[in-house]
Design a protein around this nucleic acid. Structure first.
Lengths: 343, 343
DNA sequence: TTGTATGCGTTATCAG
DNA sequence: CTGATAACGCATACAA
């Protein structure tokens, strides 16, 4: 085996307890002994066995992250943020992919329990009341990020952007650019925070701005490029009078919409303005580059990790705290100003 | 605490040894006892404590993955592949981000050693001889993926695509489309597999095809969008006679090159053909969509994981095995056929 | 301040 | 086939 605390103790002519103390700083140890122990630890390249430590303390230096899809840029950026603070704190991150499958999520949660994860972050997972119950029963605190529970009473700590306000701001941006006939490519109807709430935001904005939006202007996609194309086509087919602008709930769908519009003989932004959401890198790479709403996913991830550590330190499972990360409308070239007085 | 093997043993009126046996199937147990034990385990929702197990066996069900940047699509797709097979095997994946910092990599490697990871995969890390030495000294087997060691004698098992042949095929594709003046936006000069080897492939292709490539046609980027733009500009500025096609070593740089070309008043593919590499989703999203070389990163990841498990099972640290994953040239719309007889 | 001794939950060895 | 019991490496309550 590798070198253990006993080896160190013997070599430094102290007890194992003393070695343990200098390692953890748990109790005062005389400078002299500290020096001796440290020296031996260094020399023998001693690394505490995390199993033994975990067994003794019932704690690990692992936090789990459950996501639906690692390769989704929004998610991977969030993970990056989580990783950033976890690494600082000396924790490592166990990334688990659920493919959006509820049963798999439950399984992963249980596996994380076996691994004695000290905390878990759920990124972009759809969670309802029954899930919340189960989760509060786990051995570790949980925080949700990028997605919030559809459970009425918020119990699980959550870090998220304001989906309603973000959409309101996006619609206002379009309105300020002269658009009143605005199409909306939203998320799935069963997706609480990113589907339902954004639609809510859209309706609120339309109301308060006095926009008259026919229901055929509103279509549901699934955040993918392909669905963006399809939605664009549907809007085109189901309306004799097209919108002048279309707001999509993800940059990816916006990209699909641009492509769909092109196939329909519409060019962006001359014939039609299109706005995205997220501000993933893609928004900059596209031509025309996308006007969009920037959601700072890295910050959301780091903030979520911070909240998790706070919970871990306080020993609470959940305080119901809800943290909003501010978004920002980004102007690029996919939205044209159609106010009469300027062009 | 939670329910332990002792609780199960007591409840089922057997010894802890028997419980352990039915859990692990390590030794034959009579059907009767097996049934009883299983029943109690089910009923009490017993989950073995992975610390205790690890302490006893000195093995974990964790494999580590060290990457430079999680949010890089190439990397996250590779991780997805790794995750896929790891999950099947009942292993979970510890994802560590090094930001490409060599010191951090070493630190993470050591942390993984503490965690008693059963194996580690290095994705897209630059590794040279001295690093190889250290890595062979670790407690676990290591396999590299997407990047190979610049160490002459290959010792660490590696799963990778054939960077030389892939570029040769790309150049041939351009050649078949009538291009003989071909620019090359390659990777960093200090990047062994994706920088140096691809350049090697380019030179070999140019030679065998009898292409005359001025050195001003060859520029180094860093795989980013921005560097793609810059490289395009540089090629433009440093040549009175422009290439008819430019091959970039990543889709991202190709995207930047397209954008750079546009700023220069060149439209793709009418005035200039541009070809990418990787076949990330971006290649399809762009307009025109990119002709590129498809590298199946998901498969590379899964294959790497399989190789790692093979190593773990055989108990070897490294066998020097080198596995190539086949690539494929994908024709889309960023490359124009300029042979005289067909437009 | 330091050392001793025990427990943490499993696996594995060795008798039975 | 089954059951005691000794590791495994560390933390910590208790003594000194």
């Amino acid at each position: 085996m590798s070198v253990t605390i006993d080896d160190i103790a013997k070599e430094a002519k102290v007890s194992t307890a003393t070695v343990s103390r200098v390692i953890n700083g748990s109790k005062a140890v005389s400078p002299e002994l500290t020096r001796r122990v440290l020296e031996v630890i260094e020399r023998k390249r001693f690394k505490p066995n995390s199993f033994a430590r975990g067994l003794a303390t019932d704690k690990s230096s692992i936090i789990g992250v459950i996501v639906a899809d690692i390769s989704n840029p929004v998610i991977s950026t969030t993970i990056k943020g989580i990783n950033h603070v976890a690494q600082q704190k000396g924790y490592t991150v166990l990334v688990c992919e659920s493919d959006g499958d509820g049963r798999k999520e439950q399984m992963l949660l249980e596996r994380l329990e076996e691994q004695k994860a000290s905390g878990v972050i759920l990124a972009g997972m759809n969670v309802d009341h029954s899930r919340v119950e189960k989760m509060l029963d786990m051995d570790f605190p949980i925080v949700m990020v990028t997605q919030q529970s559809s459970d009425g009473c918020i119990t699980i700590n959550t870090v998220i952007h304001d989906n309603i306000q973000a959409i309101i701001d996006a619609v206002s941006f379009l309105y300020d650019n002269g658009h009143t006939r605005i199409g909306f490519i939203c998320g799935p109807e069963n997706d609480y925070s990113s589907g339902i709430r954004r639609l809510e935001g859209f309706r609120m904005a339309a109301d308060s701005l006095g926009l008259d939006i026919p229901s055929s202007y509103i279509v549901h996609g699934d955040f993918s490029y392909e669905s963006g194309r399809e939605c664009m086509t549907r809007i085109f087919e189901e309306n004799t009078r097209m919108p002048t602008a279309v707001l999509a709930c993800s940059d990816l769908m916006a990209a699909g919409a641009v492509s769909g519009a092109a196939s329909l003989g519409l060019s962006v932004p001359q014939d039609l303005s299109i706005m995205g959401f997220d501000d993933t890198d893609l928004a900059r790479y596209l031509n025309p580059s996308l006007s969009t709403v920037r959601i700072p996913y890295f910050e959301e991830g780091s903030k979520a990790a911070e909240e998790l550590f706070a919970l871990m330190e306080s020993g609470e499972k959940a305080t119901g705290k809800l943290v909003f990360i501010p978004h920002k409308v980004i102007r690029r070239f996919s939205v044209r100003n159609i106010k009469t007085h300027d062009s």
